[in-house]
């Protein structure tokens, strides 16, 4: 691309500066996980491994992590299913109100979380009489996660066209076989990208969770929320965040690899 040398330098500079801005506070988080001061006093008066040891021992944290993984997995599965179905319907068929479907799917993420949260909790509580629990958290998260899968699949379907599927049908494959052998493999990376984003959205969600989590259901963000405001526990929270930053690279990297390899489709 024929950009001037200055333009290139400015753009690279902006990228580097932006990444620096993103990572400085994260560095503070990591540093604070070793900070001897319980309330993140700055500059740190000393360094300690106590918080890492405390986090390692904390069964509450491990339970919360497991709850979060369950909630995010459940929400992601539902989102994958609903998002793919909706994307197929919108991309492969024309019908009355097709534009409205897009709007409907975007709505849960476009409306502030507190609105979605109180609307759902009100419905569970007073309208349906469903006791709040892990199930209601999954329902709440799935609602705003559908959109990520939907958009990824929609973009992929648009790029693919229908000719390959038609060829498959012409060669005698029925609807299911075509989906299994032709359509699905081509969509795999889009599903992965959408699913990963859905998982991440659910994993760090706190506002909708606050209103839909039932007795004893403590996702990691809720655990962090509770502990951040407990004087003896705040530094442990930094440990968890620091560990998550490091661990998160694995799923993202894997997904990137698969997406990268699959992008030849």
């Amino acid at each position: 691309m024929n950009l001037s040398r200055t333009a290139r330098a400015v753009l690279w500079g902006a990228l580097a500066a932006g990444l620096a801005v993103i990572y400085v506070p994260l560095a503070v988080v990591v540093l604070n996980s070793f900070n001897a001061d319980r309330t993140f006093g700055w500059p740190p008066p000393g360094f300690t491994l106590d918080w890492w040891a405390a986090a390692w021992r904390s069964t509450g944290m491990r339970e919360a992590l497991w709850t979060s993984v369950q909630a995010a997995s459940g929400a992601t599965l539902i989102a994958l299913l609903l998002g793919t179905m909706a994307a197929f319907a919108v991309q492969r068929y024309s019908f009355f109100g097709r534009d409205t479907v897009s709007l409907l799917i975007v709505l849960p993420i476009a409306l502030p979380g507190i609105v979605t949260g109180i609307a759902l909790s009100n419905t569970f509580h007073t309208v349906l009489g469903i006791p709040l629990g892990l199930f209601t958290v999954i329902v709440g998260h799935a609602t705003f996660c559908v959109v990520t899968v939907y958009n990824n699949v929609l973009a992929r379907l648009r790029r693919l066209g229908v000719s390959i599927e038609e060829a498959s049908a012409d060669l005698g494959a029925d609807t299911f076989t075509t989906f299994r052998l032709v359509t699905f493999p081509m969509m795999r990376s889009a599903l992965l990208a959408g699913g990963l984003l859905a998982f991440a959205l659910s994993f760090d969600e706190i506002i909708v969770t606050t209103f839909t989590a039932g007795a004893g259901v403590r996702t990691l963000p809720i655990w962090i929320f509770e502990n951040l405001f407990r004087p003896n526990q705040a530094p442990v929270v930094n440990v968890v965040a620091a560990a998550l930053i490091v661990l998160s690279v694995i799923p993202i990297w894997l997904a990137q690899r698969i997406t990268g390899e699959a992008s030849r489709y």
Binding site: D37, R38, T39, G41, P231
Partner: peptide, 30 residues
């Protein structure tokens, strides 16, 4: 919340105000 107030008093962002005994003890310990 505790953390917010202890931190504010330690850094000097706050110098006077309401508190709980437990916050005062923790701030003193720090």
């Amino acid at each position: 919340d505790y953390t917010k107030e202890i931190q504010a008093f330690k850094s000097g962002d706050s110098v006077v105000g309401t508190t709980w005994q437990v916050i005062a003890n923790l701030a003193t310990a720090e």
